[in-house]
Amino acid sequence: MAKGEIVMGALAPHPPHLVYAENPPQNEPVSEGGWEELRWGYERLRRSLVGKEFDVIIVHTPHWQTYVGTHFLGVPHFKSLSVDPIFPNLFRYSYDLTVDVELSRAIHDNAAKAGLHVQMMENPDFRIDYGTITSCHLVRPEWDIPIVCISSNRSRNYFSVEVMQANMVKLGKATREAIEASGKRALLLSSNSLSHRHFTEEPEVPEDMSQEHITNHHQYLWDMKMIELMRTGKTREMVDIMPDFTEQTVAETDAGSLTWLMAALDFPEYPGEMHAYGTVIGTGNAIIGWDPASA
């Protein structure tokens, strides 16, 4: 069996607004558009994947929050309705997806060996979180590739960003090794925004783009700092300053997704391909792809 590989890793944030704006048949609410810069960025990310074959999409999601260890989907098929608890007016999405349980379990086993507390999620009534669905939809709207979904362990809340990061580095490495041993080709998604201070009001027309901007300049400066490091291949430095970034901008990097991705990619020193930066209800969102073939 050939050695498995990561064909691409991407920062793929999940504001449900982007799905809402696309009006796919799976989503019940109807929009007039909006957030085009980010949606075009996702188009560019999808284009960068044309010609690359992959067997599985592995997503680390901030919105499956677990406190007792890191959990992995362990049921082969899920079909249900996902309603966003914060923006139910924008996201009521009927999903139908398959899970690569074999690889899921392999990563689980590897992570256990690395000393992490892990658990398979085997309840067929479980509802897939909207972060996973949004990121996967925007990267691969065809839903024709099985996924592996990894929960966000909230060790940041219990200890610190540093402890969370140390665990995510282990998890990223365990993920890479499981992929290599599996012989599979994987696309990895870190499903998170950068700065994450929301507006607490929504415009009457949610897609009214005259209302959209970063919550404050401070968040913008931090987002640009992080993006610059990712664009120039300084990902170790980026991970090193992530605790400060996370604290200062209430960033969604607190979930560990981006640290996991960087560790899985073994901290790329090649530039990330910048597809878009844009704000959604005040939060900062970047779509960036790392192609190991470009290393």
């Binding site: 406190y67 007792v68 999620m121 085997e122 509802r127």
Partner: peptide, 12 residues
């Protein structure tokens, strides 16, 4: 039918 994020193994 609700399932808890952490304690899914306890049932639906």
């Amino acid at each position: 039918t609700h399932v808890d994020d952490d304690f899914h193994y306890l049932g639906s």
